[in-house]
Write a protein that binds this DNA or RNA. Structure first.
Lengths: 231, 231
DNA sequence: CCCTTTCCTTGATCGGCATCAAGAAGAAGG
DNA sequence: CCTTCTTCTTGATGCCGATCAAGGAAAGGG
């Protein structure tokens, strides 16, 4: 199977547009860019396993990567599905510990590996970069806390509704159409459900007129009403 | 009702034991400690409202604080209930945004307010401090990720066993005795269980001879055997 | 010491979600 | 186009853990 698009990649320009690096003067980024390496992955290919040593972090150029806990019984738990311009692995990099999750390409994909050393040097040289990284990690902590909360005190239907509302473009009212970004299987695992249960919830929400399901296209006739639902 | 215990508080030592600061050399923390202030709260008292500017973050010395989204209809949405040694508001502090939630004392409580400025100044003056903070935040992220794993792919019995093994002094084999550090109610909530279910699991494990329960003292006759259990 | 309150335990019942099983609908590939 | 594989849906059944209800055991407080 061919591994995706063959265009030449400008590492420096991609790095400079990352949220994490956007405030950093381009000159200071040259060192980081020079040491970074691109890597292509075929669908299903592993980027790293749980327990592998972390020598840097990754940024997705295109394609999708999932982070998940392996499970001996086959039903692994997907923690996140990440898309272009998103990064992962920064936190582990600072602790000198192995990865706590595995990373696998969900589609053909290309990632950039940014090694630990130039990043640390950049932090030591540029305090505003250090602050940007702290803000980035803080944001991630926040969303993880939110996840834990969802698992523990929201029902499966509520979790799906929350997911759908998250996908809505703006905080708009009225109507919306959502193109699911990945397979329903993956979404099920993200929401800590089996595919069967997810399918049933989709049907129930459809029967209630709260959403319309057309394959992977979801129509929401009344966002406000969906937000008010309290099962 | 009197607002809690009157002991003298050693701010510096509390700060130095925070997860966020645990990697930071104590000498560097003096400036932060000097600008920190303690605050006592009666049950039900508000610490801050949603939308208030974030001028720092908080650490709970004792008592419990809840974080929640306000609601005009009175049925607010609780995001988290936090206990001693837990901190909150760091993420928002680094992002320079107002608090997205409100904080209210669930019981009589005492918190430490650590202002933003000395923390930021330390980062700007000493890059090793920034690295230490990044490591601290990373550690928290790591443990949260671990929590998510527990919730999603381990049974309630496995979670309790994991908790008990965590409390074992060394990674010893053989036998162990554990004094539960808090009420069983709280442990239940930590493990995402009801008190009833926790009680039943304790009884079942006792019936199997894997542990002995004497009130809040737990005896483990064979640590290795407990670790092997696979329900 | 008793009284009140909180904490813990036990039993009965219920429901949500997983599991098992099988079929339908798409997507990919020759 | 037909075959094959994956993804999605639907049904039947079962179990784990929550909930409801009540009683016992500690723990503080007067």
């Amino acid at each position: 199977m061919a591994v995706g698009k063959p265009e030449k990649i400008d590492i420096a320009s991609i790095i400079s547009r990352l949220p994490l690096f956007v405030e950093v003067p381009p000159a200071q980024l040259q060192h980081v860019a020079a040491e970074s390496r691109e890597r292509r992955l075929a669908k299903g290919e592993m980027l790293f396993h749980k327990g592998d040593p972390a020598r840097g972090f990754f940024v997705i150029i295109w394609g999708q990567i999932k982070l998940a806990f392996p499970s001996s019984t086959g039903n692994e738990k997907v923690v996140q599905v990440l898309g272009p311009r998103q990064s992962f692995g920064e936190a582990v990099m600072f602790m000198d510990r192995p990865y706590p999750v595995l990373a696998e390409a969900v589609s053909d994909a290309m990632v950039l590996h940014i090694p630990r050393k130039p990043v640390i040097e950049l932090i030591e040289r540029d305090t505003s970069f250090a602050l940007a990284m702290l803000a980035g990690l803080s944001t991630r902590l926040h969303s993880l806390v939110h996840d834990v909360e969802s698992y523990s005190l929201r029902s499966s239907t509520q979790r799906l509704i929350g997911y759908l509302l998250q996908q809505c473009p703006a905080e708009g009212k009225g109507t919306a159409e959502i193109e699911l970004p990945t397979s329903k299987q993956l979404i099920a695992s993200l929401l800590n459900l089996t595919p069967e249960t997810l399918s049933r919830i989709f049907r129930d929400l459809g029967d209630s007129g709260l959403i319309e399901v057309h394959g992977r296209l979801i129509k929401i006739p009344d966002i406000a009403r969906l937000r008010e639902v309290d099962f």
